[in-house]
């Protein structure tokens, strides 16, 4: 039924390109950390980290090639996490 999804084969070259991208982003985040961006420090670091996480999730973890169940449940989990973090932090920040 879902044969084509689980049988999707990623080439070594493609996986190596993803690794290259991840290493490059690591170099970027370490590089910019030597400059003080003030209150932008955390947003910049989290933006680069999220980009890296997206690469790992889509390709190393195959989410791009999965069916709807895994895609939708994953996005739902991320929404729960976003609510958990933002509402708690909101409460703490404006107390």
């Amino acid at each position: 039924m879902n044969e084509h999804e689980s049988e999707h084969i990623l080439s070594y070259g493609f996986l190596a390109q993803i690794l290259g991208g991840l290493v490059l982003l690591t170099a970027v985040t370490v590089g910019v950390s030597y400059i003080d961006w003030g209150f932008l420090n955390v947003p910049i670091a989290l933006f680069v980290a999220s980009s890296k996480a997206t690469l790992v999730l889509l390709f190393f973890m195959h989410i791009k090639y999965e069916g709807m169940v895994i895609k939708v449940s994953f996005i739902s989990t991320m929404l729960v996490l976003a609510f958990l973090i933002s509402f708690t932090f909101w409460d703490v920040a404006f107390r």
Binding site: M1, E5, G67, V69, S73, F74, I85, F89, V92, A93
Partner: peptide, 30 residues
């Protein structure tokens, strides 16, 4: 597919576990 969904559901619980710790980090950093 079922085998994989089971693993993902477990991974979601791990995400929330570490998410809780990141909330603590955010609150105390603030």
């Amino acid at each position: 597919t079922g085998v994989k969904i089971g693993m993902w559901i477990f991974l979601y619980s791990e995400v929330i576990l570490f998410g809780g710790l990141f909330v603590l980090y955010a609150a105390y950093f603030h």
